[in-house]
Design a protein around this nucleic acid. Structure first.
Lengths: 201, 201
DNA sequence: CGTGGTAGATTGTTCCACAATTCGACGATA
DNA sequence: TATCGTCGAATTGTGGAACAATCTACCACG
């Protein structure tokens, strides 16, 4: 429901209401909510329960700060270990196969798979956990914003570049490219956010 | 109790026993445990409750991988913003004031304060949260290992260098210095771990 | 028009209950 | 004797009801 968009940003999730709607006990709902809080999807207001996170401009910037930290480190680790990342290559392939009319959701899925592959390649449980958190938040972003996306082929080209950079072995150049890629994505989302704010305002 | 060392690594925390010992209800204990699980201090075994995390060599390496990712990014952000970090400077001062016989615990506290100051300076809520997780795990490490530490003045000197590097403005050199500093710390802990394993074996 | 108070709603926590699952002991069988 | 399966106790996972603490909204009052 959260990632569906069927819940308004900032909506308060009352315990009795939702536990009944989900057919679970209030305790169980609270336990589940705690997990989602740690993923950043919900926020706990003391004595006022949980509410769906509202992401403002600063949040998006912040999410991408952490994302940059994790992905850059993952890239460095992967490159110094010289590991191949077949899943990332597979993601690029899937990008290439997309037609002009590919659904936005498909593009997002492949994008996520690409970046997750790089994280997975590190074999670091903790970097993985931390990244899982930002990834849910990004999904939440997407659910709330539906930002503008480039044509599939442009997205494909950009990721092909990233993969080639990794294979080239030039760490600094790759790092720079990733920073640019992630920075652009963050800009995309922030402009989408501001566009929505204009509508609601 | 966890960070005291009064609980053995890998110990199972039975719900009835601990909720009674702490004077809280079983549900409350479960909720608290969930939070500690997210901090990496406890592990949940399905249908077998929670147990105190046991950190092996790989875990230490992994913790410091994430720590490196976060601190390096924090340093970069702080340096590009040109922010002063008075708390870090204060930590260095406290190091300088330490006598030869300073307690190990004091050294750890100041060390933590120094590194946390750098993280705090980013103003990034999410980098902060992620770092809080590794920090508790490091504390757990410390509680379980009591590793060998250099003389206080050496530790002081090393941190003074780090701070000076930040002030110098040379990002790459600073990054290299931090990687070395953190790598050494990780080595310290892993050797301490291996030393303990020899004893128990 | 602002202020304070009161009543209702909601959360945080406790206690009790019970199904599901795991673990260990016991005994049967080869 | 060793292996395996079965049974029972212990423990977890979940549900339900209750209650104090806290918050919210509304209303009376100055």
């Amino acid at each position: 429901m959260i990632l569906d968009g069927s819940l308004e940003p900032g909506a308060r999730l009352r315990e009795t209401e939702f536990s009944q709607r989900l057919g679970i006990a209030r305790h169980t709902f609270r336990a589940a909510a705690q997990i989602l809080i740690n993923e950043g999807l919900l926020r706990r207001l003391p004595n006022r329960g949980v509410q769906l996170a509202v992401l403002d401009r600063d949040d998006i910037v912040d999410i991408f700060r952490l994302r940059e930290a994790l992905e850059i480190e993952a890239v460095r680790l992967g490159m110094s270990a010289g590991t191949e990342i077949p899943e990332a290559a597979a993601a690029v392939e899937r990008f290439n196969d997309l037609g002009e009319d590919a659904s936005w959701r498909t593009v997002v899925d492949i994008d996520m798979a690409f970046h997750r592959a790089i994280i997975d390649a590190t074999g670091s449980e903790r970097i993985n956990r931390a990244y899982a958190g930002v990834q849910s938040e990004i999904l939440l972003c997407m659910a709330q914003l539906r930002p503008h996306y480039d044509r599939p082929e442009d997205v494909a080209a950009e990721h092909r570049e990233l993969l080639e950079a990794i294979r080239s072995g030039d760490v600094d150049a790759t790092e720079k490219l990733f920073r640019k890629h992630l920075g652009d994505a963050a800009d995309n989302l922030t402009t989408a956010l501001e566009a929505r704010e204009e509508v609601t305002a």
